[in-house]
C-alpha cells in the first residue's frame, strides 16, 4: 500500500489588488466601451462582408504585426519593471525607459502607417471600414499617448536608489497592459479576421 502524503492546506495569501482599487473603474469602464466598439464593428461588417474584406486587404498586416510585437515586448518590460520594483532592484527605472522607447516606436509606426494610407487616398471617409480603422486606432493611440505620459512621469519621479512606489508601478503597469490588450484585439479584428 502506498502512503499518500496528506497535503496541509497552505495559508492563503492576503488578497492583493494590483495598483489601487480606483484604477479598475477606468480599466473595466474602458473594456466595456471597447467591447461595445468591437460588437458594433462586427454588426456593421456582417451587413456588408465583401466590402469590409476588400478594404481590409488594403491594410499592411506587416506594420500591424510589427506594432503588436512592439507593444507585447513593451508589456514584458513593464511587467519586469513591476517585478524589479517589488524587489527594490536598481534596474527597475531602466525597464520603464525600455517600455517608453517601445511605446514611442508604436507611435512612429502608427504615424507612418496612417501617412501611407492617407497618401493613397484612403482617408477617414473612404469607406465604413476605414472610418472604423481610423477612429478605433485613433482612440487607441490616445490611450497609448496617455500611457506614455504616465510612464514618463513615473520614470522622472523615481531614482534607482530609492524605495520604489510599488503600487504606482502596478497601477501604471495595469494601464499599460490594458493598452496592449486592446491593441491585440484591434489587430485581430481589423487586420486578420476574415
Amino acid at each position: 500500500m502506498i502512503a499518500v502524503p496528506i497535503k496541509q492546506p497552505a495559508e492563503r495569501p492576503a488578497k492583493h489588488i494590483p495598483g489601487e482599487e480606483g484604477i479598475w473603474v477606468l480599466i473595466f469602464g474602458d473594456m466595456v466601451v471597447f467591447a461595445i466598439f468591437f460588437v458594433t464593428f462586427l454588426v456593421y461588417k456582417a451587413g456588408n462582408p465583401a466590402a469590409y474584406e476588400a478594404d481590409q486587404a488594403l491594410l499592411n498586416p506587416h506594420l500591424g504585426l510589427l506594432n503588436t510585437l512592439l507593444l507585447l515586448t513593451s508589456s514584458l518590460f513593464m511587467a519586469q519593471a513591476v517585478r524589479l520594483a517589488r524587489l527594490g532592484a536598481k534596474e527597475a527605472p531602466a525597464m520603464i525607459t525600455a517600455t517608453i522607447v517601445l511605446g514611442l516606436g508604436f507611435v512612429v509606426v502608427k504615424a507612418f502607417e496612417w501617412g501611407e494610407k492617407i497618401r493613397a487616398g484612403l482617408t477617414l471617409t473612404h469607406s465604413e471600414f476605414f472610418t472604423y480603422y481610423y477612429m478605433f486606432t485613433g482612440i487607441h493611440l490616445m490611450h497609448v499617448l496617455i500611457g506614455l505620459g504616465v510612464l514618463l512621469w513615473l520614470r522622472s519621479s523615481c531614482k534607482p536608489s530609492e524605495q520604489y512606489p510599488v503600487a504606482t508601478f502596478e497601477g501604471c503597469g495595469v494601464f499599460w497592459h490594458l493598452v496592449d490588450l486592446l491593441w491585440v484585439v484591434l489587430f485581430a479584428l481589423l487586420y486578420l479576421m476574415k
Binding site: E20, G22, V25, G29, D30, I139, M142, I146
Partner: peptide, 20 residues
C-alpha cells in the same frame, strides 16, 4: 475618492469622438 479621479479620465476619453 480616488476612483472619481479615474472615472473623470475615463469619461474624458469617451467624450472625444463627438468632435468628429
Amino acid at each position: 475618492p480616488r476612483w472619481l479621479g479615474y472615472a473623470n479620465i475615463w469619461v474624458g476619453i469617451l467624450a472625444a469622438p463627438g468632435s468628429f
